[in-house]
């Protein structure tokens, strides 16, 4: 079996008339944690959204492969069912559907198997404990009235429950306090194994400290300008992006 999980090849992406990504190449193998860092507006979130084929963005050139299969033009739900998950920067609020029911339904869609309610609830409870989440949130409407921190934890909970092959975390750490960031890191550790991969998009080195990161990519103006090991993140934290900008 090939180790290759995600392969982005020469990807150009526009938002409306605006060019955002200008030729991205990125390969993630199973068992790896990758990080994308970059200044505001460099195209980090666009990369995540393009992988999931968000209709607000247009792929102009290049492609995205998952385990060797071209997923560039699949619908978002099909991509999700193939095992890609994204933790949203601003999770949507959906009134009228509880966290439990939503996840049960999504899990059924992703696995294609019926979900046994009692086992499922136990699993949910276990993960919520790990993430220090209030068990009452299970019965609340999805993200409605959740604080910023609760929303982000709820994204990590979804990641654990849906157990994707590739998890993309789009600035999951932004706006979180130290404890919450630690919880998110813990969630990632819990999720991570040799068969899956993680792509973390962040501004911030804190979330990376307790993780073993394989590659750090720096994205500036729609291009990956350099790639390095975990130390690169520390260097950027100290020095900023200035030297990568023209």
């Amino acid at each position: 079996m090939s180790k290759e999980l995600l392969n982005i090849k020469d990807l150009y992406v526009n938002a409306g008339d605006k060019e955002i990504l200008k030729g991205i190449n990125l390969k993630i193998n199973k068992g790896e944690i990758h990080v994308i860092m970059g200044p505001n507006g460099s195209g980090k979130s666009t990369t995540a959204n393009a992988i999931l084929n968000n209709p607000e963005y247009t792929k102009v050139q290049g492609k995205v492969e998952l385990e060797g299969k071209d997923i560039s033009n699949l619908k978002t739900d099909e991509i999700a069912r193939l095992g890609v998950f994204m933790s949203f920067q601003l999770p949507e609020e959906i009134p009228g559907i509880t966290v439990t029911n939503f996840l049960k339904y999504a899990k059924n869609k992703v696995t294609g198997k019926p979900v046994k309610i009692f086992e499922f609830k136990d699993e949910l409870k276990k993960y919520m404990d790990e993430l220090n989440m209030n068990p009452k949130n299970m019965d609340r409407s999805l993200n409605v009235g959740f604080s910023g921190g609760e929303k982000k934890k709820n994204e990590i909970l979804q990641m654990l429950v849906l157990n994707p092959k590739l998890a993309i975390l789009d600035e999951t750490d932004s706006g979180l306090d130290v404890d919450a960031i630690r919880t998110v890191s813990k969630g990632i550790e819990l999720f991570k194994n040799d068969e899956n991969g993680v792509l973390i998009i962040t501004h911030n080195n804190k979330i990376l400290r307790s993780l073993k990161v394989d590659y750090v990519h720096v994205l500036v103006d729609g291009k990956i300008v350099t790639t390095g090991s975990q130390e690169l993140a520390t260097i950027i934290e100290n020095e900023g992006y200035a030297k990568y900008k023209n």
């Binding site: 999931l52 968000n54 209709p55 607000e56 619908k75 978002t76 739900d77 991509i79 999700a80 069912r81 998950f85 994204m86 949203f88 999770p91 949507e92 959906i94 009134p95 009228g96 559907i97 939503f102 339904y105 999504a106 869609k109 992703v110 409407s141 979804q158 849906l162």
Partner: peptide, 20 residues
């Protein structure tokens, strides 16, 4: 898009939102 990223089809997502 959010719901579809969780593996839910567009039709189901819309129905879910309307019910919500």
């Amino acid at each position: 898009f959010y719901l579809m990223s969780r593996g839910i089809s567009e039709e189901d997502a819309k129905a879910m939102i309307v019910r919500g």
